[in-house]
Design a protein around this nucleic acid. Sequence first.
DNA 1: ATGGCAAACGCAGTTTGA
Length: 258
Amino acid sequence: MSMKVASWNVNSLKVRLPQVLEWLQEKSPDVLCLQETKLSDEKFPVAELAEAGYHALYHGQPTYNGVAILSRSVPEDGRCDWPDGSDGQARLCAGTFAGTRVVNVYVPNGQSLESDKYPYKLQWLERLRALIAKELQQWPRLLLVGDFNIAPDDRDVYDPVAWGEEVLCSPPERAALTALLNLGLQDSWRHQHGDLQEWSWWDYRAAGFRRNRGLRIDLILASNALMTKVQDVVIDRNARAAERPSDHAPVLIQLEEV
DNA sequence: ATGGCAAACGCAGTTTGA
């Protein structure tokens, strides 16, 4: 039995609900992880998604952040925030599907190296590393997916010279990502596609998409126990070309015999 | 060469994103 799991930063589910419903119908993923829903929980479109055949596990707040996991089946061991207490930002949720743990994250952006948000980002990533280490003990088959707000290396940046070591590309952020990978995870898209260069995010400004100036910051990290099951990993740039798009494209992984 | 958009909130313009 194969399984399709996707991740998509929708930049407001209120605005993007029609595109999400269309995408669910077109791709029929078993699991779709969303980031930046920007909806408080009472405004989450539970009924519309149920009508489309999807259960929703969601954790939001007004205006900022917000994550959700849409799924054909009801997750086991659903988690909507940190086990050791929230920091007031809705950036994490998780659920288990047929024994495969899916952890959905919206990693803080960091804004700039000088910002207070930058050390917050690094601390957040360290806290995530500790959580994932525990989760892997319980669920060796694990996917860590989401908007990481980190370009793993220079192959993931349209102009690495211009971006330099600024936020999203700085060595401490990349080291934090490497520390996550060192738990026994792999960047599944990179593993599948060698040195290929594709982007998952394009700036709304400066005709970023038309000129194909982007970054690959939306990732699906798969545990070693799952990597042998990976059939394909794709970034759906068609979604970015749609009417009134999110600035991120969905990433979709297909697993066999899960 | 530079800057260039979109969304939330709320009703003008600020803040945030990446």
